[in-house]
Design a protein around this nucleic acid. Structure first.
Length: 574
DNA sequence: GCCGTTTTCGGCCCGACTGTTTTCAGTCG
Protein backbone atom coordinates (compact mmCIF):
# COMPACT_ATOMS: atom_id res chain seq x y z
CA UNK A 1 0.00 0.00 0.00
CA UNK A 2 1.15 3.54 -0.81
CA UNK A 3 2.32 5.82 2.01
CA UNK A 4 -0.27 8.36 1.01
CA UNK A 5 -3.07 5.85 1.50
CA UNK A 6 -1.72 4.82 4.89
CA UNK A 7 -1.39 8.47 5.89
CA UNK A 8 -5.02 8.99 4.97
CA UNK A 9 -6.16 6.53 7.66
CA UNK A 10 -4.70 8.84 10.29
CA UNK A 11 -6.05 12.04 8.78
CA UNK A 12 -9.49 10.45 8.85
CA UNK A 13 -9.06 9.37 12.45
CA UNK A 14 -8.08 12.94 13.34
CA UNK A 15 -11.22 14.31 11.68
CA UNK A 16 -13.45 11.79 13.40
CA UNK A 17 -11.96 12.35 16.84
CA UNK A 18 -12.20 16.08 16.36
CA UNK A 19 -15.91 15.94 15.69
CA UNK A 20 -16.31 13.85 18.83
CA UNK A 21 -14.53 16.54 20.85
CA UNK A 22 -11.59 14.32 21.78
CA UNK A 23 -8.35 15.50 23.41
CA UNK A 24 -6.87 18.02 20.97
CA UNK A 25 -3.32 16.83 21.54
CA UNK A 26 -4.22 13.30 20.68
CA UNK A 27 -5.86 14.61 17.53
CA UNK A 28 -2.74 16.57 16.71
CA UNK A 29 -0.65 13.42 17.00
CA UNK A 30 -2.81 11.68 14.40
CA UNK A 31 -2.84 14.68 12.10
CA UNK A 32 0.91 15.05 12.49
CA UNK A 33 1.40 11.39 11.69
CA UNK A 34 -0.69 11.82 8.54
CA UNK A 35 1.56 14.63 7.39
CA UNK A 36 4.81 12.84 8.23
CA UNK A 37 3.81 9.58 6.59
CA UNK A 38 2.55 11.25 3.41
CA UNK A 39 5.89 13.04 3.02
CA UNK A 40 8.06 10.01 3.70
CA UNK A 41 10.08 8.79 0.73
CA UNK A 42 10.65 5.31 2.17
CA UNK A 43 7.85 2.84 1.56
CA UNK A 44 6.09 2.03 4.83
CA UNK A 45 4.81 -1.15 3.30
CA UNK A 46 8.39 -2.23 2.69
CA UNK A 47 9.54 -1.10 6.13
CA UNK A 48 6.85 -3.17 7.82
CA UNK A 49 7.59 -6.21 5.71
CA UNK A 50 11.30 -6.02 6.43
CA UNK A 51 10.63 -5.62 10.14
CA UNK A 52 12.03 -2.11 10.52
CA UNK A 53 11.16 -0.25 13.71
CA UNK A 54 8.61 2.38 12.76
CA UNK A 55 9.10 4.18 16.05
CA UNK A 56 12.42 5.44 14.71
CA UNK A 57 10.31 7.90 12.73
CA UNK A 58 9.94 11.02 14.82
CA UNK A 59 6.27 11.60 15.62
CA UNK A 60 5.40 7.92 15.39
CA UNK A 61 5.11 6.18 18.73
CA UNK A 62 3.91 2.80 19.85
CA UNK A 63 0.22 3.41 19.19
CA UNK A 64 0.49 4.64 15.65
CA UNK A 65 3.25 2.23 14.67
CA UNK A 66 1.03 -0.71 15.69
CA UNK A 67 -1.75 0.77 13.61
CA UNK A 68 0.52 1.11 10.58
CA UNK A 69 1.46 -2.54 10.86
CA UNK A 70 -2.21 -3.50 11.05
CA UNK A 71 -2.99 -1.42 7.95
CA UNK A 72 -0.15 -2.92 5.94
CA UNK A 73 -0.94 -6.48 6.98
CA UNK A 74 -4.73 -6.42 6.71
CA UNK A 75 -5.52 -3.40 4.55
CA UNK A 76 -7.85 -2.18 7.27
CA UNK A 77 -7.76 -0.58 10.69
CA UNK A 78 -10.16 -1.67 13.39
CA UNK A 79 -9.75 1.57 15.32
CA UNK A 80 -10.79 3.61 12.29
CA UNK A 81 -13.81 1.35 11.73
CA UNK A 82 -14.84 1.87 15.34
CA UNK A 83 -14.57 5.63 15.07
CA UNK A 84 -16.48 5.62 11.80
CA UNK A 85 -19.28 3.71 13.50
CA UNK A 86 -19.63 6.53 16.02
CA UNK A 87 -19.94 9.34 13.50
CA UNK A 88 -22.26 9.58 10.48
CA UNK A 89 -20.17 8.86 7.43
CA UNK A 90 -20.53 12.19 5.64
CA UNK A 91 -19.94 14.40 8.67
CA UNK A 92 -16.16 14.77 8.20
CA UNK A 93 -16.77 16.29 4.75
CA UNK A 94 -18.34 19.26 6.48
CA UNK A 95 -14.92 20.15 7.94
CA UNK A 96 -13.98 21.32 4.46
CA UNK A 97 -16.49 24.16 4.72
CA UNK A 98 -14.56 27.30 5.60
CA UNK A 99 -15.46 28.72 8.98
CA UNK A 100 -17.01 25.46 10.08
CA UNK A 101 -15.16 23.44 12.69
CA UNK A 102 -15.86 20.33 14.71
CA UNK A 103 -17.88 22.08 17.42
CA UNK A 104 -20.39 23.63 15.07
CA UNK A 105 -20.68 20.46 13.02
CA UNK A 106 -21.47 18.50 16.14
CA UNK A 107 -23.99 21.13 17.21
CA UNK A 108 -25.78 21.03 13.86
CA UNK A 109 -25.90 17.27 13.92
CA UNK A 110 -27.12 16.98 17.50
CA UNK A 111 -29.80 19.64 17.20
CA UNK A 112 -30.90 19.36 13.58
CA UNK A 113 -29.63 15.99 12.36
CA UNK A 114 -27.49 17.64 9.69
CA UNK A 115 -25.08 15.04 8.29
CA UNK A 116 -24.37 16.16 4.73
CA UNK A 117 -23.47 19.18 2.65
CA UNK A 118 -26.93 19.17 1.05
CA UNK A 119 -28.77 19.12 4.37
CA UNK A 120 -26.53 21.87 5.70
CA UNK A 121 -27.26 24.00 2.68
CA UNK A 122 -31.01 23.49 2.99
CA UNK A 123 -30.98 24.36 6.68
CA UNK A 124 -28.90 27.49 6.10
CA UNK A 125 -31.18 28.64 3.29
CA UNK A 126 -34.26 27.99 5.41
CA UNK A 127 -32.79 30.07 8.24
CA UNK A 128 -32.83 27.16 10.66
CA UNK A 129 -29.25 27.57 11.87
CA UNK A 130 -29.59 31.10 13.25
CA UNK A 131 -31.56 30.04 16.31
CA UNK A 132 -28.77 27.80 17.60
CA UNK A 133 -26.35 28.98 20.28
CA UNK A 134 -23.67 31.28 18.96
CA UNK A 135 -25.24 31.41 15.52
CA UNK A 136 -26.91 34.21 13.62
CA UNK A 137 -27.96 35.29 10.15
CA UNK A 138 -24.40 36.26 9.23
CA UNK A 139 -22.99 32.86 10.11
CA UNK A 140 -25.60 31.28 7.87
CA UNK A 141 -24.48 33.46 5.00
CA UNK A 142 -20.86 32.55 5.62
CA UNK A 143 -21.67 28.88 5.64
CA UNK A 144 -23.53 29.14 2.34
CA UNK A 145 -20.50 30.79 0.76
CA UNK A 146 -18.27 28.11 2.24
CA UNK A 147 -20.45 25.38 0.75
CA UNK A 148 -20.21 27.05 -2.66
CA UNK A 149 -16.43 27.08 -2.41
CA UNK A 150 -16.29 23.41 -1.49
CA UNK A 151 -18.47 22.64 -4.51
CA UNK A 152 -16.17 24.68 -6.76
CA UNK A 153 -13.42 22.40 -5.61
CA UNK A 154 -11.07 25.15 -4.50
CA UNK A 155 -7.88 23.76 -3.23
CA UNK A 156 -4.27 24.39 -3.88
CA UNK A 157 -2.57 26.22 -6.72
CA UNK A 158 0.69 25.41 -8.44
CA UNK A 159 3.65 27.40 -7.16
CA UNK A 160 4.17 29.35 -10.39
CA UNK A 161 0.52 30.41 -10.37
CA UNK A 162 0.68 31.46 -6.72
CA UNK A 163 3.90 33.39 -7.21
CA UNK A 164 2.53 35.27 -10.21
CA UNK A 165 -0.50 36.44 -8.21
CA UNK A 166 1.77 37.37 -5.33
CA UNK A 167 4.04 39.38 -7.58
CA UNK A 168 1.11 41.26 -9.13
CA UNK A 169 -0.28 42.12 -5.71
CA UNK A 170 3.05 43.24 -4.35
CA UNK A 171 3.49 45.50 -7.39
CA UNK A 172 0.06 46.98 -6.73
CA UNK A 173 0.50 47.47 -2.98
CA UNK A 174 4.00 48.90 -3.41
CA UNK A 175 2.46 52.08 -4.77
CA UNK A 176 0.04 52.57 -1.88
CA UNK A 177 0.85 55.61 0.27
CA UNK A 178 2.89 54.91 3.38
CA UNK A 179 3.89 51.37 2.43
CA UNK A 180 7.56 50.82 3.33
CA UNK A 181 8.15 47.15 2.77
CA UNK A 182 6.35 44.09 1.43
CA UNK A 183 7.30 40.46 1.68
CA UNK A 184 5.55 37.27 0.56
CA UNK A 185 5.68 34.60 3.25
CA UNK A 186 3.90 31.30 3.75
CA UNK A 187 4.32 28.20 1.61
CA UNK A 188 5.11 30.40 -1.41
CA UNK A 189 8.25 31.58 0.37
CA UNK A 190 9.10 28.02 1.34
CA UNK A 191 8.71 27.21 -2.38
CA UNK A 192 6.35 24.34 -1.87
CA UNK A 193 5.21 22.84 -5.14
CA UNK A 194 1.67 24.04 -4.46
CA UNK A 195 0.31 26.89 -2.36
CA UNK A 196 -3.03 26.99 -0.56
CA UNK A 197 -3.07 30.74 -0.02
CA UNK A 198 -0.79 33.77 -0.06
CA UNK A 199 0.45 35.65 2.99
CA UNK A 200 1.78 39.09 2.23
CA UNK A 201 3.43 41.02 5.05
CA UNK A 202 3.81 44.78 5.14
CA UNK A 203 5.43 47.55 7.09
CA UNK A 204 3.70 50.88 6.67
CA UNK A 205 3.00 54.26 8.24
CA UNK A 206 0.29 54.51 10.86
CA UNK A 207 -2.42 55.94 8.62
CA UNK A 208 -1.54 54.14 5.39
CA UNK A 209 -4.70 53.16 3.47
CA UNK A 210 -3.19 49.77 2.68
CA UNK A 211 -6.05 47.60 3.93
CA UNK A 212 -8.70 49.58 2.05
CA UNK A 213 -6.61 49.45 -1.10
CA UNK A 214 -6.03 45.75 -0.66
CA UNK A 215 -9.68 44.79 -0.17
CA UNK A 216 -10.66 46.92 -3.18
CA UNK A 217 -8.02 45.33 -5.46
CA UNK A 218 -9.65 44.57 -8.79
CA UNK A 219 -9.07 40.83 -8.61
CA UNK A 220 -10.91 40.51 -5.28
CA UNK A 221 -14.11 38.53 -5.40
CA UNK A 222 -14.91 38.40 -1.71
CA UNK A 223 -13.60 40.03 1.46
CA UNK A 224 -13.38 37.33 4.10
CA UNK A 225 -12.01 39.46 6.93
CA UNK A 226 -10.78 42.99 7.27
CA UNK A 227 -9.08 44.30 10.35
CA UNK A 228 -6.31 46.75 11.22
CA UNK A 229 -3.49 44.26 11.16
CA UNK A 230 -5.00 41.43 9.15
CA UNK A 231 -7.24 41.33 6.12
CA UNK A 232 -8.18 38.36 4.05
CA UNK A 233 -9.74 38.14 0.61
CA UNK A 234 -10.55 35.58 -2.03
CA UNK A 235 -9.54 36.42 -5.58
CA UNK A 236 -11.79 35.56 -8.52
CA UNK A 237 -9.50 32.63 -9.33
CA UNK A 238 -10.34 31.18 -5.91
CA UNK A 239 -6.98 31.90 -4.30
CA UNK A 240 -7.14 33.31 -0.76
CA UNK A 241 -4.76 36.14 0.07
CA UNK A 242 -4.00 37.55 3.51
CA UNK A 243 -2.25 40.85 4.10
CA UNK A 244 -0.80 41.53 7.52
CA UNK A 245 0.65 44.78 8.77
CA UNK A 246 3.55 44.42 11.18
CA UNK A 247 5.52 46.81 13.36
CA UNK A 248 9.06 47.42 12.16
CA UNK A 249 10.41 45.96 15.40
CA UNK A 250 8.62 42.67 14.90
CA UNK A 251 8.93 42.27 11.15
CA UNK A 252 11.53 39.53 11.50
CA UNK A 253 9.48 37.50 13.94
CA UNK A 254 6.37 38.09 11.84
CA UNK A 255 8.15 36.93 8.71
CA UNK A 256 9.43 33.89 10.56
CA UNK A 257 6.01 33.13 11.96
CA UNK A 258 4.02 33.51 8.75
CA UNK A 259 6.57 31.64 6.66
CA UNK A 260 5.96 28.50 8.70
CA UNK A 261 5.62 25.69 8.25
CA UNK A 262 3.28 25.15 11.10
CA UNK A 263 5.23 22.08 12.15
CA UNK A 264 8.52 24.01 12.02
CA UNK A 265 7.04 26.79 14.13
CA UNK A 266 5.68 24.43 16.74
CA UNK A 267 9.07 22.78 17.04
CA UNK A 268 10.73 26.18 17.30
CA UNK A 269 8.34 27.34 20.01
CA UNK A 270 8.92 24.23 22.04
CA UNK A 271 12.61 24.96 21.77
CA UNK A 272 11.96 28.52 22.95
CA UNK A 273 10.03 27.24 25.96
CA UNK A 274 12.85 24.90 26.91
CA UNK A 275 15.06 27.98 27.10
CA UNK A 276 12.70 30.07 29.20
CA UNK A 277 11.63 32.01 26.12
CA UNK A 278 8.36 32.63 24.37
CA UNK A 279 8.19 32.96 20.60
CA UNK A 280 5.30 34.63 18.82
CA UNK A 281 4.87 36.72 15.68
CA UNK A 282 5.76 39.73 17.83
CA UNK A 283 9.14 38.53 18.86
CA UNK A 284 11.12 36.40 21.25
CA UNK A 285 10.42 37.24 24.90
CA UNK A 286 11.88 36.15 28.20
CA UNK A 287 9.09 34.41 30.05
CA UNK A 288 10.29 35.53 33.49
CA UNK A 289 10.62 39.21 32.73
CA UNK A 290 8.53 39.65 29.60
CA UNK A 291 11.50 41.39 28.05
CA UNK A 292 11.75 41.26 24.28
CA UNK A 293 15.07 39.86 23.12
CA UNK A 294 14.57 39.61 19.33
CA UNK A 295 12.11 40.31 16.54
CA UNK A 296 13.44 42.95 14.18
CA UNK A 297 15.18 40.61 11.78
CA UNK A 298 14.46 36.97 11.09
CA UNK A 299 18.04 35.94 11.76
CA UNK A 300 17.85 37.52 15.23
CA UNK A 301 14.90 35.30 16.07
CA UNK A 302 16.87 32.17 15.20
CA UNK A 303 19.93 33.53 16.96
CA UNK A 304 17.96 34.08 20.15
CA UNK A 305 17.09 30.40 20.03
CA UNK A 306 20.73 29.46 19.55
CA UNK A 307 20.43 28.71 15.84
CA UNK A 308 21.72 30.08 12.55
CA UNK A 309 19.13 31.31 10.06
CA UNK A 310 17.41 28.32 8.47
CA UNK A 311 16.54 28.78 4.78
CA UNK A 312 12.75 28.91 4.24
CA UNK A 313 12.88 25.91 1.87
CA UNK A 314 14.01 23.69 4.74
CA UNK A 315 11.41 24.75 7.29
CA UNK A 316 9.27 21.63 7.29
CA UNK A 317 10.34 20.04 10.57
CA UNK A 318 12.26 17.37 8.70
CA UNK A 319 15.43 17.61 10.74
CA UNK A 320 16.44 21.18 9.87
CA UNK A 321 16.41 22.37 13.48
CA UNK A 322 18.72 19.55 14.56
CA UNK A 323 21.01 20.23 11.58
CA UNK A 324 21.06 23.94 12.42
CA UNK A 325 21.97 23.13 15.98
CA UNK A 326 24.84 20.90 14.87
CA UNK A 327 25.98 23.37 12.26
CA UNK A 328 25.38 20.92 9.43
CA UNK A 329 22.81 22.84 7.42
CA UNK A 330 23.50 22.46 3.70
CA UNK A 331 24.69 25.37 1.61
CA UNK A 332 21.76 25.21 -0.78
CA UNK A 333 22.25 25.24 -4.50
CA UNK A 334 21.45 28.54 -6.24
CA UNK A 335 20.33 29.46 -9.73
CA UNK A 336 23.72 31.05 -10.38
CA UNK A 337 25.40 27.67 -9.82
CA UNK A 338 23.82 26.29 -12.98
CA UNK A 339 26.03 26.04 -16.04
CA UNK A 340 23.60 24.49 -18.45
CA UNK A 341 20.30 22.81 -19.19
CA UNK A 342 20.26 19.15 -20.20
CA UNK A 343 16.68 18.69 -21.35
CA UNK A 344 15.27 20.92 -24.11
CA UNK A 345 13.21 20.53 -27.28
CA UNK A 346 13.17 22.19 -30.67
CA UNK A 347 10.86 22.41 -33.65
CA UNK A 348 12.19 19.07 -34.81
CA UNK A 349 9.74 17.43 -32.38
CA UNK A 350 7.21 19.44 -30.36
CA UNK A 351 9.23 22.54 -29.43
CA UNK A 352 8.70 26.05 -30.77
CA UNK A 353 12.22 27.21 -31.57
CA UNK A 354 15.23 26.15 -33.64
CA UNK A 355 18.49 24.77 -32.32
CA UNK A 356 20.17 28.13 -32.95
CA UNK A 357 17.46 30.06 -31.11
CA UNK A 358 17.64 27.74 -28.11
CA UNK A 359 21.42 28.05 -28.04
CA UNK A 360 21.27 31.81 -28.19
CA UNK A 361 18.75 31.90 -25.34
CA UNK A 362 20.90 29.55 -23.27
CA UNK A 363 23.96 31.67 -23.85
CA UNK A 364 22.03 34.76 -22.76
CA UNK A 365 21.29 33.05 -19.43
CA UNK A 366 25.01 32.75 -18.85
CA UNK A 367 25.11 29.00 -19.49
CA UNK A 368 28.08 27.17 -20.97
CA UNK A 369 26.00 24.52 -22.68
CA UNK A 370 22.55 23.18 -23.35
CA UNK A 371 21.60 19.74 -24.58
CA UNK A 372 19.01 19.46 -27.33
CA UNK A 373 16.95 16.41 -26.51
CA UNK A 374 13.97 16.01 -28.80
CA UNK A 375 11.50 13.18 -28.51
CA UNK A 376 11.96 9.83 -30.19
CA UNK A 377 9.57 8.27 -32.67
CA UNK A 378 7.30 6.45 -30.20
CA UNK A 379 5.88 9.80 -29.17
CA UNK A 380 3.98 10.28 -32.41
CA UNK A 381 1.87 13.13 -31.14
CA UNK A 382 5.05 15.12 -30.50
CA UNK A 383 6.46 14.31 -33.93
CA UNK A 384 9.22 12.25 -32.37
CA UNK A 385 12.43 11.58 -34.32
CA UNK A 386 13.39 8.26 -35.87
CA UNK A 387 17.03 7.25 -36.37
CA UNK A 388 17.30 9.00 -39.68
CA UNK A 389 15.86 12.32 -38.54
CA UNK A 390 17.91 12.22 -35.35
CA UNK A 391 21.09 11.67 -37.38
CA UNK A 392 20.21 14.72 -39.41
CA UNK A 393 19.53 16.70 -36.22
CA UNK A 394 22.94 15.76 -34.80
CA UNK A 395 24.64 17.05 -37.96
CA UNK A 396 22.74 20.31 -37.63
CA UNK A 397 23.92 20.65 -34.05
CA UNK A 398 27.50 20.27 -35.30
CA UNK A 399 26.83 23.05 -37.75
CA UNK A 400 25.39 25.36 -35.05
CA UNK A 401 28.37 24.64 -32.81
CA UNK A 402 30.82 25.61 -35.48
CA UNK A 403 29.29 29.09 -35.51
CA UNK A 404 29.36 29.52 -31.71
CA UNK A 405 32.18 30.45 -29.41
CA UNK A 406 32.27 29.96 -25.67
CA UNK A 407 29.10 27.93 -25.78
CA UNK A 408 28.32 24.37 -26.72
CA UNK A 409 25.16 22.67 -27.88
CA UNK A 410 25.25 19.08 -26.74
CA UNK A 411 23.91 16.38 -29.01
CA UNK A 412 21.10 14.62 -27.24
CA UNK A 413 17.77 12.90 -27.38
CA UNK A 414 14.88 12.09 -25.06
CA UNK A 415 14.42 8.48 -25.96
CA UNK A 416 11.27 6.64 -24.97
CA UNK A 417 11.39 3.70 -22.66
CA UNK A 418 9.09 1.20 -24.34
CA UNK A 419 6.74 -1.06 -22.41
CA UNK A 420 9.26 -3.91 -22.29
CA UNK A 421 12.08 -1.68 -21.03
CA UNK A 422 13.87 -1.48 -24.36
CA UNK A 423 14.62 1.89 -25.91
CA UNK A 424 12.87 3.43 -28.87
CA UNK A 425 16.07 4.05 -30.87
CA UNK A 426 18.99 1.85 -31.88
CA UNK A 427 22.16 1.73 -29.78
CA UNK A 428 24.11 2.85 -32.85
CA UNK A 429 22.45 6.23 -33.00
CA UNK A 430 22.33 6.63 -29.19
CA UNK A 431 26.12 6.19 -29.15
CA UNK A 432 26.36 9.27 -31.34
CA UNK A 433 24.64 11.35 -28.64
CA UNK A 434 26.37 13.09 -25.77
CA UNK A 435 23.29 13.26 -23.56
CA UNK A 436 20.76 10.45 -23.73
CA UNK A 437 17.70 11.07 -21.60
CA UNK A 438 15.39 8.13 -21.11
CA UNK A 439 11.75 8.69 -20.26
CA UNK A 440 8.39 6.97 -19.88
CA UNK A 441 5.57 8.52 -21.89
CA UNK A 442 3.20 5.60 -22.32
CA UNK A 443 1.47 2.77 -20.46
CA UNK A 444 1.27 4.69 -17.18
CA UNK A 445 -1.14 2.16 -15.74
CA UNK A 446 1.34 -0.70 -15.35
CA UNK A 447 1.67 -2.60 -12.12
CA UNK A 448 4.49 -1.40 -9.88
CA UNK A 449 6.72 -4.43 -10.34
CA UNK A 450 6.41 -4.30 -14.11
CA UNK A 451 7.07 -0.55 -14.24
CA UNK A 452 10.07 -0.83 -11.94
CA UNK A 453 11.60 -3.58 -14.07
CA UNK A 454 10.82 -1.61 -17.22
CA UNK A 455 12.68 1.45 -16.03
CA UNK A 456 15.60 -0.43 -14.52
CA UNK A 457 16.04 -2.30 -17.78
CA UNK A 458 16.38 1.04 -19.56
CA UNK A 459 18.88 2.34 -16.98
CA UNK A 460 21.07 -0.68 -17.68
CA UNK A 461 21.51 0.39 -21.27
CA UNK A 462 25.05 1.85 -21.23
CA UNK A 463 24.05 4.71 -23.52
CA UNK A 464 21.57 6.22 -21.06
CA UNK A 465 22.83 9.21 -19.05
CA UNK A 466 19.71 10.65 -17.44
CA UNK A 467 16.31 9.39 -16.33
CA UNK A 468 13.82 12.19 -17.06
CA UNK A 469 10.83 13.00 -14.83
CA UNK A 470 11.24 9.72 -12.96
CA UNK A 471 7.67 9.37 -11.64
CA UNK A 472 5.65 10.87 -14.49
CA UNK A 473 3.36 12.96 -12.33
CA UNK A 474 1.70 16.23 -13.29
CA UNK A 475 1.06 18.38 -10.26
CA UNK A 476 -2.66 18.63 -9.39
CA UNK A 477 -3.42 16.83 -12.64
CA UNK A 478 -1.94 13.34 -12.80
CA UNK A 479 -0.75 11.00 -10.10
CA UNK A 480 2.71 9.48 -10.50
CA UNK A 481 2.78 6.03 -12.03
CA UNK A 482 3.36 3.17 -9.63
CA UNK A 483 7.06 2.50 -9.38
CA UNK A 484 9.54 1.20 -6.82
CA UNK A 485 11.47 4.42 -6.66
CA UNK A 486 14.08 3.17 -4.26
CA UNK A 487 14.99 0.30 -6.55
CA UNK A 488 15.11 2.68 -9.50
CA UNK A 489 17.44 5.00 -7.60
CA UNK A 490 19.67 2.11 -6.65
CA UNK A 491 19.85 1.03 -10.29
CA UNK A 492 20.62 4.61 -11.30
CA UNK A 493 23.52 4.69 -8.86
CA UNK A 494 24.80 1.31 -10.03
CA UNK A 495 24.66 2.32 -13.69
CA UNK A 496 25.85 5.90 -13.21
CA UNK A 497 22.64 7.40 -14.52
CA UNK A 498 21.54 10.83 -13.29
CA UNK A 499 18.07 11.33 -11.94
CA UNK A 500 16.38 14.43 -13.22
CA UNK A 501 14.59 17.06 -11.24
CA UNK A 502 12.35 18.27 -14.02
CA UNK A 503 12.10 22.00 -13.33
CA UNK A 504 8.82 22.58 -15.12
CA UNK A 505 6.36 23.84 -12.48
CA UNK A 506 3.76 21.38 -13.78
CA UNK A 507 6.09 18.50 -13.00
CA UNK A 508 8.80 19.14 -10.37
CA UNK A 509 9.68 15.49 -10.71
CA UNK A 510 11.55 14.12 -8.75
CA UNK A 511 9.66 15.86 -5.98
CA UNK A 512 11.54 17.32 -3.00
CA UNK A 513 11.55 14.39 -0.57
CA UNK A 514 12.35 11.87 -3.30
CA UNK A 515 15.26 13.95 -4.57
CA UNK A 516 16.54 14.13 -1.01
CA UNK A 517 16.37 10.37 -0.74
CA UNK A 518 18.16 10.01 -4.09
CA UNK A 519 20.93 12.29 -2.86
CA UNK A 520 21.27 10.32 0.35
CA UNK A 521 21.51 7.10 -1.65
CA UNK A 522 24.40 8.59 -3.59
CA UNK A 523 22.62 9.29 -6.87
CA UNK A 524 23.68 12.06 -9.20
CA UNK A 525 21.03 14.65 -9.94
CA UNK A 526 20.45 16.84 -12.96
CA UNK A 527 18.09 19.81 -12.96
CA UNK A 528 16.62 20.68 -16.33
CA UNK A 529 13.65 22.58 -17.68
CA UNK A 530 12.22 20.31 -20.40
CA UNK A 531 11.90 23.60 -22.29
CA UNK A 532 9.64 23.45 -25.33
CA UNK A 533 10.50 27.03 -26.24
CA UNK A 534 13.31 29.43 -25.44
CA UNK A 535 11.27 31.26 -22.79
CA UNK A 536 10.85 27.99 -20.90
CA UNK A 537 14.56 28.00 -20.14
CA UNK A 538 13.65 30.51 -17.42
CA UNK A 539 11.77 27.81 -15.52
CA UNK A 540 15.07 26.57 -14.10
CA UNK A 541 14.37 28.48 -10.87
CA UNK A 542 11.53 26.10 -9.99
CA UNK A 543 13.92 23.19 -10.22
CA UNK A 544 16.30 25.08 -7.94
CA UNK A 545 13.46 25.65 -5.46
CA UNK A 546 12.70 21.94 -5.39
CA UNK A 547 16.39 21.09 -5.10
CA UNK A 548 16.63 23.46 -2.13
CA UNK A 549 13.71 21.72 -0.48
CA UNK A 550 15.60 18.45 -1.11
CA UNK A 551 18.63 19.83 0.80
CA UNK A 552 20.77 19.70 -2.37
CA UNK A 553 24.03 21.55 -2.72
CA UNK A 554 25.70 22.47 -6.00
CA UNK A 555 28.04 19.48 -5.71
CA UNK A 556 25.11 17.06 -5.92
CA UNK A 557 23.97 18.39 -9.29
CA UNK A 558 25.84 17.49 -12.47
CA UNK A 559 24.88 20.48 -14.54
CA UNK A 560 26.61 22.84 -12.14
CA UNK A 561 29.84 21.40 -13.58
CA UNK A 562 31.83 22.97 -16.39
CA UNK A 563 31.48 21.19 -19.73
CA UNK A 564 34.40 18.78 -19.45
CA UNK A 565 33.51 17.87 -15.87
CA UNK A 566 29.91 17.32 -16.87
CA UNK A 567 30.74 14.97 -19.73
CA UNK A 568 33.07 13.02 -17.52
CA UNK A 569 30.57 12.84 -14.66
CA UNK A 570 27.61 11.63 -16.67
CA UNK A 571 29.88 8.89 -17.95
CA UNK A 572 29.97 9.68 -21.59
CA UNK A 573 31.53 6.60 -23.03
CA UNK A 574 31.14 4.82 -19.69
C1' DG B 1 -1.02 9.89 20.97
C1' DC B 2 3.95 11.54 21.44
C1' DC B 3 7.91 12.70 24.04
C1' DG B 4 11.97 12.99 27.59
C1' DT B 5 20.39 15.35 29.53
C1' DT B 6 15.44 18.53 34.76
C1' DT B 7 10.30 14.44 33.42
C1' DT B 8 7.91 7.32 32.03
C1' DC B 9 3.82 11.62 33.97
C1' DG B 10 2.28 15.66 32.57
C1' DG B 11 3.08 18.57 29.59
C1' DC B 12 1.90 19.55 24.54
C1' DC B 13 2.42 27.16 20.30
C1' DC B 14 0.16 31.48 20.21
C1' DG B 15 -2.59 35.29 18.85
C1' DA B 16 -6.16 37.69 15.50
C1' DC B 17 -10.68 37.99 13.72
C1' DT B 18 -15.65 37.02 13.60
C1' DG B 19 -20.09 36.82 15.20
C1' DT B 20 -22.26 36.43 18.72
C1' DT B 21 -21.88 38.16 22.48
C1' DT B 22 -21.85 42.00 27.56
C1' DT B 23 -16.97 38.63 28.27
C1' DC B 24 -16.35 34.79 24.90
C1' DA B 25 -16.18 30.48 22.04
C1' DG B 26 -14.99 28.90 17.69
C1' DT B 27 -12.05 28.93 13.85
C1' DC B 28 -7.93 29.80 11.41
C1' DG B 29 -3.17 29.89 10.28
Amino acid sequence: MENKQIADFFVRIADLLEIQGENPFRIRSYRNAGRILADMPDSLDEMVRSGRNLQDISGIGSGISKKIVEIVETGRLKFLDEQMAKVPSRLPQLLRVEGLGPKKIKLFYDKLGIDSLDKLERAAKAGELRDLDGMGAKSEEKILKGIQNVRRGLGRFKLDVGLSYAQALVEYLKNVKGVKRLETSGSARRRRETVGDLDILAICDKNSPIMGKFTSYEGVEEVIASGETKSSVRLTCGLQVDVRVLERGSFGSGLQYFTGSKAHNIALRSRANERGLKLSEYGVFEISTGKKVAGREEKDVYKALGLPLIPPELREDRGEIEAAEKGTLPKLIELSDMRGDLHTHTRASDGKNTIGEMAEAGKKLGYEYIAITDHSKAVRIANGLDEERLAKQLREIDKVNSSLSGFRVLKGVEVDILADGSLDLSDEILKECEVVIAAVHSRFGMEEKEMTERIICALENPNVNVLAHPTGRLILAREPYKVGLKEVIRAAVDNNVCLEINAHPDRLDLRDVDAQMAKEMGAKISISTDAHSKVHLDLMKYGIFTAGRAWLEAKHVVNTLALSGLLKSIGNGK
